[in-house]
C-alpha cells in the first residue's frame, strides 16, 4: 500500500503537469484560431456525448502545419536556429576544450578551486549573465571604447543586436556545460598512455590527436549535446542580444503567442520544434547509457 502511494504521487503529478499539457498543445496545434475565449476552435463539448467528441475530432486538421511550410518566416527560423545552435556549439567546444585540458593538467591542489570557478557562473542568474554583455557590446559599450582607445578601429562597431552578439551570448552562458563533462573525461585519463605514445615516437601533437582526443570523446559528445539542445530553443539570448533580423524559433514562438495571440500556430511551432529535438535527445541519451555501461 505504502509503495503504491510512493509511486503514485510523483507519477500522477508528472502525468497531470507534464504529459497532459503536451496533449493539450498537440490538440490546439490542430485547431483553428478564433476570436473568442479561449482563442481557438473547436472546444471539446463532453455534454454532447459521442456526437460531441466526433464533431470535435472532425474539426481538427493539419492546417497550421501546412501554414508553417508556406510562410517562409517559420522554416527560415528553424534553419537559422539549427545553424546558430550548431555553430555556437562548435565555438563553445573550441573555447571549452583548452580550459578543460588546462584544468586537468593543473596541479592537484588547484583543481577544486578551478572547479568552483567554473561552477560559480552556473549558480549566478542566467538572465544577469546575458544582460552583462549588453553593456559591453553596445555602440558606446566597454568593448568599443577599449578598441577605440587602442586605435584598432576609428568608428564603434555594431555588435549588439546582431547574430555575433547571439553567438557570444551562447558561448558565454553555456561554457560551463561544455567544460565540466570534458574535464571529467580528461581527469579520469591515465597519463602514462601519453607518455607511452611519446616513448613510441609520437610528437606531442600527434599524441594529443591519437590518444587524448579519442579518450575524451564521450565528454566532448556529452558537452556538445548539453550546449546544442538548450541553444536550439533559446529565447532570452536572441531577444536581449540579437537584433530584429535574428531569427530563432524560441523567439518566434514567444511572439506568436504573446504578440499575435495566435495560440494554434504557437502550438504547431512548439510541436515541430519538439520533433526536431527528438533526434539529438535520443542520441544524447544513448551516449550517456553507453558511458554508464563502460564505467561499470
Amino acid at each position: 500500500m505504502r509503495r503504491v502511494i510512493l509511486i503514485a504521487v510523483p507519477y500522477l503529478w508528472l502525468l497531470a503537469l507534464f504529459l497532459v499539457p503536451f496533449v493539450i498543445v498537440l490538440k490546439i496545434s490542430l485547431s483553428d484560431a478564433a476570436i473568442s475565449i479561449p482563442p481557438y476552435t473547436p472546444t471539446l463539448d463532453l455534454s454532447a456525448g459521442w456526437q460531441g467528441i466526433r464533431d470535435f475530432l472532425a474539426a481538427l486538421d493539419f492546417e497550421n502545419f501546412v501554414w508553417l511550410t508556406q510562410d517562409d518566416l517559420y522554416w527560415k527560423a528553424y534553419l537559422s536556429s539549427l545553424w546558430i545552435a550548431l555553430a555556437s556549439t562548435a565555438m563553445t567546444l573550441l573555447a571549452g576544450y583548452p580550459i578543460a585540458y588546462g584544468m586537468a593538467r593543473a596541479p592537484e591542489e588547484w583543481r577544486p578551486t578551478l572547479m568552483m570557478l567554473v561552477i560559480l557562473p552556473f549558480w549566478t542568474s542566467f538572465l544577469i549573465r546575458v544582460y552583462s554583455w549588453m553593456g559591453i557590446l553596445s555602440q558606446e559599450g566597454v568593448l568599443n571604447q577599449f578598441l577605440l582607445w587602442l586605435g584598432v578601429i576609428d568608428r564603434p562597431l555594431m555588435i549588439l543586436n546582431t547574430n555575433t552578439a547571439v553567438y557570444i551570448g551562447i558561448v558565454y552562458t553555456y561554457l560551463p556545460f561544455m567544460i565540466l563533462p570534458i574535464y571529467a573525461a580528461l581527469d579520469r585519463m591515465d597519463n602514462s598512455l601519453i607518455e607511452a605514445a611519446e616513448d613510441l615516437g609520437c610528437s606531442r601533437l600527434t599524441a594529443f590527436w591519437l590518444v587524448t582526443v579519442p579518450l575524451s570523446k564521450n565528454g566532448i559528445i556529452a558537452g556538445c549535446f548539453l550546449v546544442f539542445i538548450p541553444a536550439l530553443g533559446e529565447f532570452v539570448i536572441p531577444s536581449l542580444l540579437g537584433g530584429s533580423r535574428t531569427l530563432m524559433i524560441g523567439k518566434v514562438l514567444w511572439e506568436e503567442f504573446f504578440s499575435n495571440r495566435d495560440w494554434p500556430v504557437a502550438s504547431a511551432v512548439a510541436v515541430v520544434l519538439l520533433l526536431i529535438l527528438v533526434v539529438p535527445i535520443v542520441l544524447f541519451q544513448r551516449n550517456q547509457e553507453r558511458q554508464q555501461e563502460a564505467e561499470k
Binding site: L15, P21, I28, F235, L253, W254, S267, L273
Partner: peptide, 21 residues
C-alpha cells in the same frame, strides 16, 4: 521518460504547455 524529458525540454515549450493547461 517523464523524469528525464523536462531536463532537455526548451523552456518556451514547457511554459506554453503549462499555460494552456
Amino acid at each position: 521518460g517523464m523524469i528525464y524529458a523536462p531536463l532537455v525540454m526548451p523552456e518556451v515549450i514547457t511554459g506554453l504547455s503549462l499555460l494552456l493547461l
